[in-house]
Protein backbone atom coordinates (compact mmCIF):
# COMPACT_ATOMS: atom_id res chain seq x y z
CA UNK A 1 0.00 0.00 0.00
CA UNK A 2 1.48 3.33 1.02
CA UNK A 3 4.58 1.78 2.58
CA UNK A 4 7.06 3.31 0.21
CA UNK A 5 5.96 6.96 0.60
CA UNK A 6 5.89 6.47 4.38
CA UNK A 7 9.44 5.16 4.31
CA UNK A 8 10.61 8.00 2.09
CA UNK A 9 8.92 10.47 4.45
CA UNK A 10 10.65 8.92 7.47
CA UNK A 11 14.00 9.00 5.68
CA UNK A 12 13.42 12.66 4.81
CA UNK A 13 12.67 13.51 8.43
CA UNK A 14 15.76 11.64 9.62
CA UNK A 15 17.84 13.53 7.05
CA UNK A 16 16.42 16.86 8.18
CA UNK A 17 17.16 16.03 11.82
CA UNK A 18 20.74 15.01 11.01
CA UNK A 19 21.31 18.21 8.98
CA UNK A 20 19.98 20.38 11.82
CA UNK A 21 22.27 18.77 14.38
CA UNK A 22 25.36 18.77 12.15
CA UNK A 23 24.94 22.17 10.47
CA UNK A 24 26.45 24.48 13.14
CA UNK A 25 29.55 22.32 13.46
CA UNK A 26 29.91 22.01 9.69
CA UNK A 27 29.63 25.80 9.38
CA UNK A 28 32.29 26.28 12.07
CA UNK A 29 34.61 24.03 10.05
CA UNK A 30 33.85 25.99 6.88
CA UNK A 31 34.37 29.42 8.48
CA UNK A 32 37.68 28.26 10.00
CA UNK A 33 38.99 27.96 6.41
CA UNK A 34 37.58 31.29 5.18
CA UNK A 35 39.53 34.48 4.63
CA UNK A 36 38.33 37.69 6.31
CA UNK A 37 36.59 38.92 3.15
CA UNK A 38 35.14 35.52 2.37
CA UNK A 39 33.44 35.42 5.80
CA UNK A 40 31.31 38.40 4.80
CA UNK A 41 29.77 36.59 1.82
CA UNK A 42 27.68 34.34 4.06
CA UNK A 43 28.11 31.39 1.71
CA UNK A 44 28.20 27.90 3.17
CA UNK A 45 31.48 26.82 1.57
CA UNK A 46 34.69 28.87 1.53
CA UNK A 47 35.82 30.39 -1.81
CA UNK A 48 39.56 29.82 -2.02
CA UNK A 49 40.07 28.18 1.41
CA UNK A 50 42.94 29.36 3.62
CA UNK A 51 44.79 27.54 6.37
CA UNK A 52 45.95 30.77 8.03
CA UNK A 53 43.21 30.89 10.70
CA UNK A 54 44.46 27.82 12.52
CA UNK A 55 48.02 28.96 13.33
CA UNK A 56 46.52 32.46 13.70
CA UNK A 57 44.16 31.34 16.48
CA UNK A 58 46.93 29.52 18.34
CA UNK A 59 49.20 32.58 18.22
CA UNK A 60 46.43 35.08 19.11
CA UNK A 61 45.77 33.30 22.41
CA UNK A 62 47.63 30.70 24.51
CA UNK A 63 45.18 27.99 23.40
CA UNK A 64 47.55 25.12 24.20
CA UNK A 65 47.82 26.31 27.79
CA UNK A 66 44.02 26.67 28.01
CA UNK A 67 43.55 23.13 26.67
CA UNK A 68 46.08 21.83 29.19
CA UNK A 69 44.27 23.57 32.06
CA UNK A 70 40.89 22.30 30.90
CA UNK A 71 42.05 18.70 30.56
CA UNK A 72 43.84 18.83 33.93
CA UNK A 73 40.85 20.30 35.76
CA UNK A 74 38.39 17.95 34.04
CA UNK A 75 40.42 14.79 34.75
CA UNK A 76 41.20 15.65 38.35
CA UNK A 77 37.62 16.66 39.14
CA UNK A 78 36.12 13.55 37.50
CA UNK A 79 38.39 11.23 39.52
CA UNK A 80 37.56 12.98 42.79
CA UNK A 81 33.82 13.02 41.99
CA UNK A 82 33.76 9.25 41.42
CA UNK A 83 35.88 8.60 44.51
CA UNK A 84 33.46 10.64 46.64
CA UNK A 85 30.29 9.22 45.13
CA UNK A 86 30.88 5.50 44.55
CA UNK A 87 31.18 4.48 48.23
CA UNK A 88 28.21 6.65 49.19
CA UNK A 89 25.94 5.30 46.45
CA UNK A 90 26.99 1.73 47.28
CA UNK A 91 26.43 2.21 50.99
CA UNK A 92 23.00 3.73 50.38
CA UNK A 93 21.85 0.91 48.11
CA UNK A 94 23.36 -2.12 49.85
CA UNK A 95 24.06 -1.05 53.43
CA UNK A 96 20.92 1.11 53.60
CA UNK A 97 22.89 4.07 54.93
CA UNK A 98 21.00 7.37 54.74
CA UNK A 99 18.63 5.97 52.13
CA UNK A 100 15.82 8.13 53.47
CA UNK A 101 17.33 11.54 52.79
CA UNK A 102 20.39 11.15 50.56
CA UNK A 103 18.48 11.03 47.23
CA UNK A 104 16.44 14.10 48.21
CA UNK A 105 19.54 15.98 49.35
CA UNK A 106 21.41 15.30 46.09
CA UNK A 107 18.38 16.30 43.98
CA UNK A 108 17.94 19.52 45.95
CA UNK A 109 21.64 20.26 45.47
CA UNK A 110 21.36 19.63 41.72
CA UNK A 111 18.36 21.96 41.39
CA UNK A 112 20.28 25.05 42.41
CA UNK A 113 21.86 26.78 39.39
CA UNK A 114 25.65 27.25 39.57
CA UNK A 115 25.17 31.03 39.84
CA UNK A 116 23.85 30.39 43.37
CA UNK A 117 27.28 29.14 44.42
CA UNK A 118 29.15 31.93 42.61
CA UNK A 119 29.65 34.37 45.49
CA UNK A 120 29.89 31.89 48.40
CA UNK A 121 32.49 29.76 46.60
CA UNK A 122 34.38 32.87 45.47
CA UNK A 123 34.86 33.89 49.09
CA UNK A 124 35.61 30.31 50.18
CA UNK A 125 38.33 29.94 47.53
CA UNK A 126 39.75 33.33 48.44
CA UNK A 127 39.80 32.41 52.12
CA UNK A 128 41.53 29.07 51.48
CA UNK A 129 44.02 30.57 49.02
CA UNK A 130 42.67 28.44 46.16
CA UNK A 131 41.27 31.29 44.10
CA UNK A 132 42.86 31.47 40.66
CA UNK A 133 44.27 27.94 40.85
CA UNK A 134 43.56 24.80 38.84
CA UNK A 135 43.24 22.80 42.06
CA UNK A 136 40.57 25.15 43.42
CA UNK A 137 38.52 24.98 40.22
CA UNK A 138 38.92 21.18 40.03
CA UNK A 139 37.64 20.80 43.61
CA UNK A 140 34.66 23.07 42.89
CA UNK A 141 33.70 20.86 39.92
CA UNK A 142 34.47 17.64 41.80
CA UNK A 143 32.04 18.63 44.57
CA UNK A 144 29.51 20.26 42.26
CA UNK A 145 29.15 17.22 39.99
CA UNK A 146 28.51 14.81 42.86
CA UNK A 147 24.70 14.85 42.38
CA UNK A 148 25.08 14.01 38.68
CA UNK A 149 27.47 11.15 39.46
CA UNK A 150 25.16 9.88 42.19
CA UNK A 151 22.18 9.63 39.83
CA UNK A 152 24.27 8.06 37.06
CA UNK A 153 25.97 5.45 39.27
CA UNK A 154 23.02 4.31 41.38
CA UNK A 155 21.18 2.36 38.62
CA UNK A 156 24.36 0.47 37.71
CA UNK A 157 24.94 -0.54 41.35
CA UNK A 158 21.30 -1.59 41.77
CA UNK A 159 21.62 -4.10 38.96
CA UNK A 160 24.55 -6.00 40.49
CA UNK A 161 23.07 -9.36 41.56
CA UNK A 162 22.85 -9.53 45.35
CA UNK A 163 23.93 -13.21 45.30
CA UNK A 164 27.41 -12.31 44.08
CA UNK A 165 27.92 -9.87 46.92
CA UNK A 166 26.54 -12.37 49.42
CA UNK A 167 29.00 -14.93 48.12
CA UNK A 168 31.85 -12.49 48.62
CA UNK A 169 30.64 -11.82 52.15
CA UNK A 170 30.56 -15.53 52.94
CA UNK A 171 34.10 -15.81 51.63
CA UNK A 172 34.96 -13.35 54.37
CA UNK A 173 35.16 -10.13 52.41
CA UNK A 174 33.97 -7.07 54.31
CA UNK A 175 31.86 -4.42 52.58
CA UNK A 176 34.94 -2.39 51.60
CA UNK A 177 36.64 -5.41 50.01
CA UNK A 178 33.39 -6.38 48.30
CA UNK A 179 32.99 -2.92 46.79
CA UNK A 180 36.61 -2.62 45.64
CA UNK A 181 37.27 -6.09 44.26
CA UNK A 182 33.84 -7.45 43.36
CA UNK A 183 31.32 -4.68 42.70
CA UNK A 184 33.55 -1.98 41.17
CA UNK A 185 34.93 -4.23 38.39
CA UNK A 186 31.39 -5.36 37.55
CA UNK A 187 30.08 -1.80 37.16
CA UNK A 188 33.25 -0.56 35.43
CA UNK A 189 31.31 0.58 32.32
CA UNK A 190 29.00 2.63 34.55
CA UNK A 191 31.94 4.12 36.43
CA UNK A 192 33.65 4.99 33.14
CA UNK A 193 30.51 6.64 31.73
CA UNK A 194 30.00 8.60 34.96
CA UNK A 195 33.62 9.76 35.06
CA UNK A 196 33.53 10.85 31.41
CA UNK A 197 30.23 12.72 31.75
CA UNK A 198 31.44 14.51 34.88
CA UNK A 199 34.75 15.26 33.15
CA UNK A 200 32.99 16.71 30.12
CA UNK A 201 30.73 18.82 32.35
CA UNK A 202 33.84 20.22 34.04
CA UNK A 203 35.63 20.72 30.72
CA UNK A 204 32.67 22.67 29.31
CA UNK A 205 31.86 24.80 32.37
CA UNK A 206 32.18 28.54 31.85
CA UNK A 207 30.41 30.64 34.51
CA UNK A 208 32.39 29.56 37.57
CA UNK A 209 35.63 29.22 35.60
CA UNK A 210 35.35 32.81 34.40
CA UNK A 211 34.89 34.05 37.97
CA UNK A 212 37.47 31.84 39.70
CA UNK A 213 40.37 32.03 37.22
CA UNK A 214 41.82 35.46 36.77
CA UNK A 215 44.97 35.00 34.72
CA UNK A 216 46.17 33.31 31.53
CA UNK A 217 48.02 30.59 33.46
CA UNK A 218 44.89 29.18 35.09
CA UNK A 219 42.16 29.91 32.56
CA UNK A 220 40.27 27.06 30.95
CA UNK A 221 39.28 26.76 27.29
CA UNK A 222 35.69 28.09 27.49
CA UNK A 223 37.01 31.20 29.26
CA UNK A 224 39.78 31.61 26.69
CA UNK A 225 37.22 31.23 23.93
CA UNK A 226 35.00 33.91 25.42
CA UNK A 227 37.96 36.31 25.47
CA UNK A 228 38.29 35.99 21.69
CA UNK A 229 34.86 37.55 21.50
CA UNK A 230 35.84 40.60 23.50
CA UNK A 231 38.60 41.50 21.06
CA UNK A 232 37.85 44.61 19.07
CA UNK A 233 39.29 43.06 15.93
CA UNK A 234 36.83 40.22 15.60
CA UNK A 235 38.27 37.59 13.31
CA UNK A 236 35.52 35.06 12.66
CA UNK A 237 37.89 32.58 10.99
CA UNK A 238 40.15 32.47 14.05
CA UNK A 239 37.21 32.24 16.47
CA UNK A 240 35.88 29.28 14.49
CA UNK A 241 39.28 27.57 14.55
CA UNK A 242 39.65 28.17 18.29
CA UNK A 243 36.13 26.82 18.92
CA UNK A 244 36.91 23.67 16.97
CA UNK A 245 40.10 23.23 18.97
CA UNK A 246 37.96 23.43 22.11
CA UNK A 247 35.41 20.97 20.75
CA UNK A 248 37.91 18.42 19.39
CA UNK A 249 38.82 16.69 22.70
CA UNK A 250 35.17 16.07 23.68
CA UNK A 251 34.27 14.83 20.19
CA UNK A 252 37.18 12.40 20.27
CA UNK A 253 35.85 11.03 23.55
CA UNK A 254 32.33 10.88 22.09
CA UNK A 255 33.67 8.96 19.09
CA UNK A 256 35.37 6.24 21.11
CA UNK A 257 33.02 6.09 24.09
CA UNK A 258 29.61 6.70 22.51
CA UNK A 259 28.25 3.30 23.56
CA UNK A 260 29.15 3.83 27.24
CA UNK A 261 27.92 7.39 27.23
CA UNK A 262 24.52 6.71 25.69
CA UNK A 263 24.03 3.76 28.02
CA UNK A 264 25.20 5.74 31.05
CA UNK A 265 22.88 8.66 30.33
CA UNK A 266 19.96 6.40 29.46
CA UNK A 267 20.16 4.41 32.69
CA UNK A 268 20.74 7.40 34.88
CA UNK A 269 17.98 9.54 33.45
CA UNK A 270 15.16 7.03 33.47
CA UNK A 271 15.01 4.69 36.40
Amino acid sequence: MNRLPARAGAAGLVGLTAVFFLLPIAYLVSVSFKTKDDVLTGSFLPHGPTLANWPGAFSAAPLVGFIGNSVLVATLSALVTVALTLPAAYAMIRLKVAEGWLPQATLASYMAPPVVALLPLFFLLKFTGLLNSQLGLALVYAFGNVPVAFWLLAPFLRRVPLEIEQAAAIDGAGPVRTLVSVVAPMVAPGIAATAIICGVLAYNEFLLASAFTLSGETRTLPVGLSLFQGDRLVNFGQIAAASLAAIAPVYLIALFMQRFLVEGLAHGGVK
Binding site: F21, I25, L28, N204, F206, P222, I239, R259, V262
Partner: peptide, 19 residues
Protein backbone atom coordinates in the same frame (compact mmCIF):
# COMPACT_ATOMS: atom_id res chain seq x y z
CA UNK B 1 21.68 8.19 15.02
CA UNK B 2 21.34 8.29 18.81
CA UNK B 3 25.15 8.27 19.02
CA UNK B 4 25.25 11.05 16.45
CA UNK B 5 23.02 13.37 18.47
CA UNK B 6 25.43 12.92 21.37
CA UNK B 7 27.65 15.53 19.68
CA UNK B 8 25.57 18.69 20.32
CA UNK B 9 25.07 17.59 23.92
CA UNK B 10 28.81 17.32 24.49
CA UNK B 11 29.76 20.57 22.73
CA UNK B 12 31.00 23.24 25.16
CA UNK B 13 28.10 25.74 25.47
CA UNK B 14 30.46 28.65 24.75
CA UNK B 15 31.35 27.01 21.42
CA UNK B 16 27.63 26.40 20.75
CA UNK B 17 27.12 30.13 21.23
CA UNK B 18 29.99 30.95 18.87
CA UNK B 19 28.66 28.59 16.17
Amino acid sequence: LVSLVLLPLMTPPVAVGVA
